[in-house]
Structure formats: structure tokens, C-alpha cells
Amino acid sequence: MKIGEIAIISHSSRQRDNFIRSICRKIDLENELVSFGRFEINDQLGLHFYGISIDKQDSDLSWDLISRKMLGYVVIFDWEDLISLESVKPIVNGFAETLRAPFVIVGNVPDMSKPPIPKIFFQDKGIHLSPNFRFTFGQVDQPECARKILTLLIDMLLDRVEHNGFFQHK
């Protein structure tokens, strides 16, 4: 079976688990620092999700080893919590310096029927931060929303595959 691996990173274990549960329906392995869920497409193809919580003090998470096989990353923070944004910022900047992979940064909101800005501005392609980073709003405990976020990540991968399958230099 061919497996695609995606890392879900959040400042809170609740958010990262909500996202994985929204996609995978259940979580196979779970603790404070990491969780793991599977999404089977068919008998030959599946996705594995590694949910990772970040703490401001926790700076050594073996990124080098897990990162190399990741197709992409979803980074979630609470749009209404400034501390949450501050906690993901250095991680995002660190990733930008060390990895060429697609990242979808999600500003989690409690109610996607009333997002901070009209959906038309971010819905289809997210907001461009850099060639490998897109930003979008989402409600990660809502399965439909979580799938849209993941679809955005897959679209970024498809874009790269169109160009010989590799990430371009910035």
C-alpha cells in the first residue's frame, strides 16, 4: 500500500486531534505531544497524519527525521488567540528556512459561517504567503472544512507535480 504522510501541527493537542478526527474519523495513537491517524483512499493508497503539538519551550522534535518523508504540513492556530499565533510564528519561520514543502497555515475560527473576511478571498486557493506557504481560515472540527484545507494542500502538491514533481526554489 502506498502511503502519503502529512504532519498536522498545532499549539494545542485538542485542535490537532480535531483536525485528524475530522478527516480520519478516529485517532489510532494519542498522547500530549503526538497523535496518529489513518485515512484509507482505497486498498492501494492511504494517508497517514502525524499530529504534533508545539510548546514554546519544546524546540527539538526530531523534525529532520520526520520531515523528509512528509508530503506537506498543516499548521493550525487559533485566529482569536494572539498567543496561539505567536507560538506558531517561529515554527513557521523555522520551517521556511529549512524545508521546501507545501504548508497550509490555518487560522481556526469557531464558526465558519461567519469568517473574519469573506470566503471568496481565501476559499479556493488560500492567501499566498510564499510559493510554499498558503494561509486560509477554517473550522478544524468540521469535517467538510478539514477536507477543504487538505484539498488546498493537495492542490499545492498537484501544482508542483505539474512542474516535474519537485518544489521550485523560491
Partner: peptide, 10 residues
């Protein structure tokens, strides 16, 4: 950097 741009968007 992308994190800084996130801050600006916010």
C-alpha cells in the same frame, strides 16, 4: 518570512 507575513495579515 512567512511567519512575519502571517502577523501582518492578522
Amino acid at each position: 518570512r512567512p511567519g512575519d507575513k502571517l502577523d501582518i495579515l492578522y
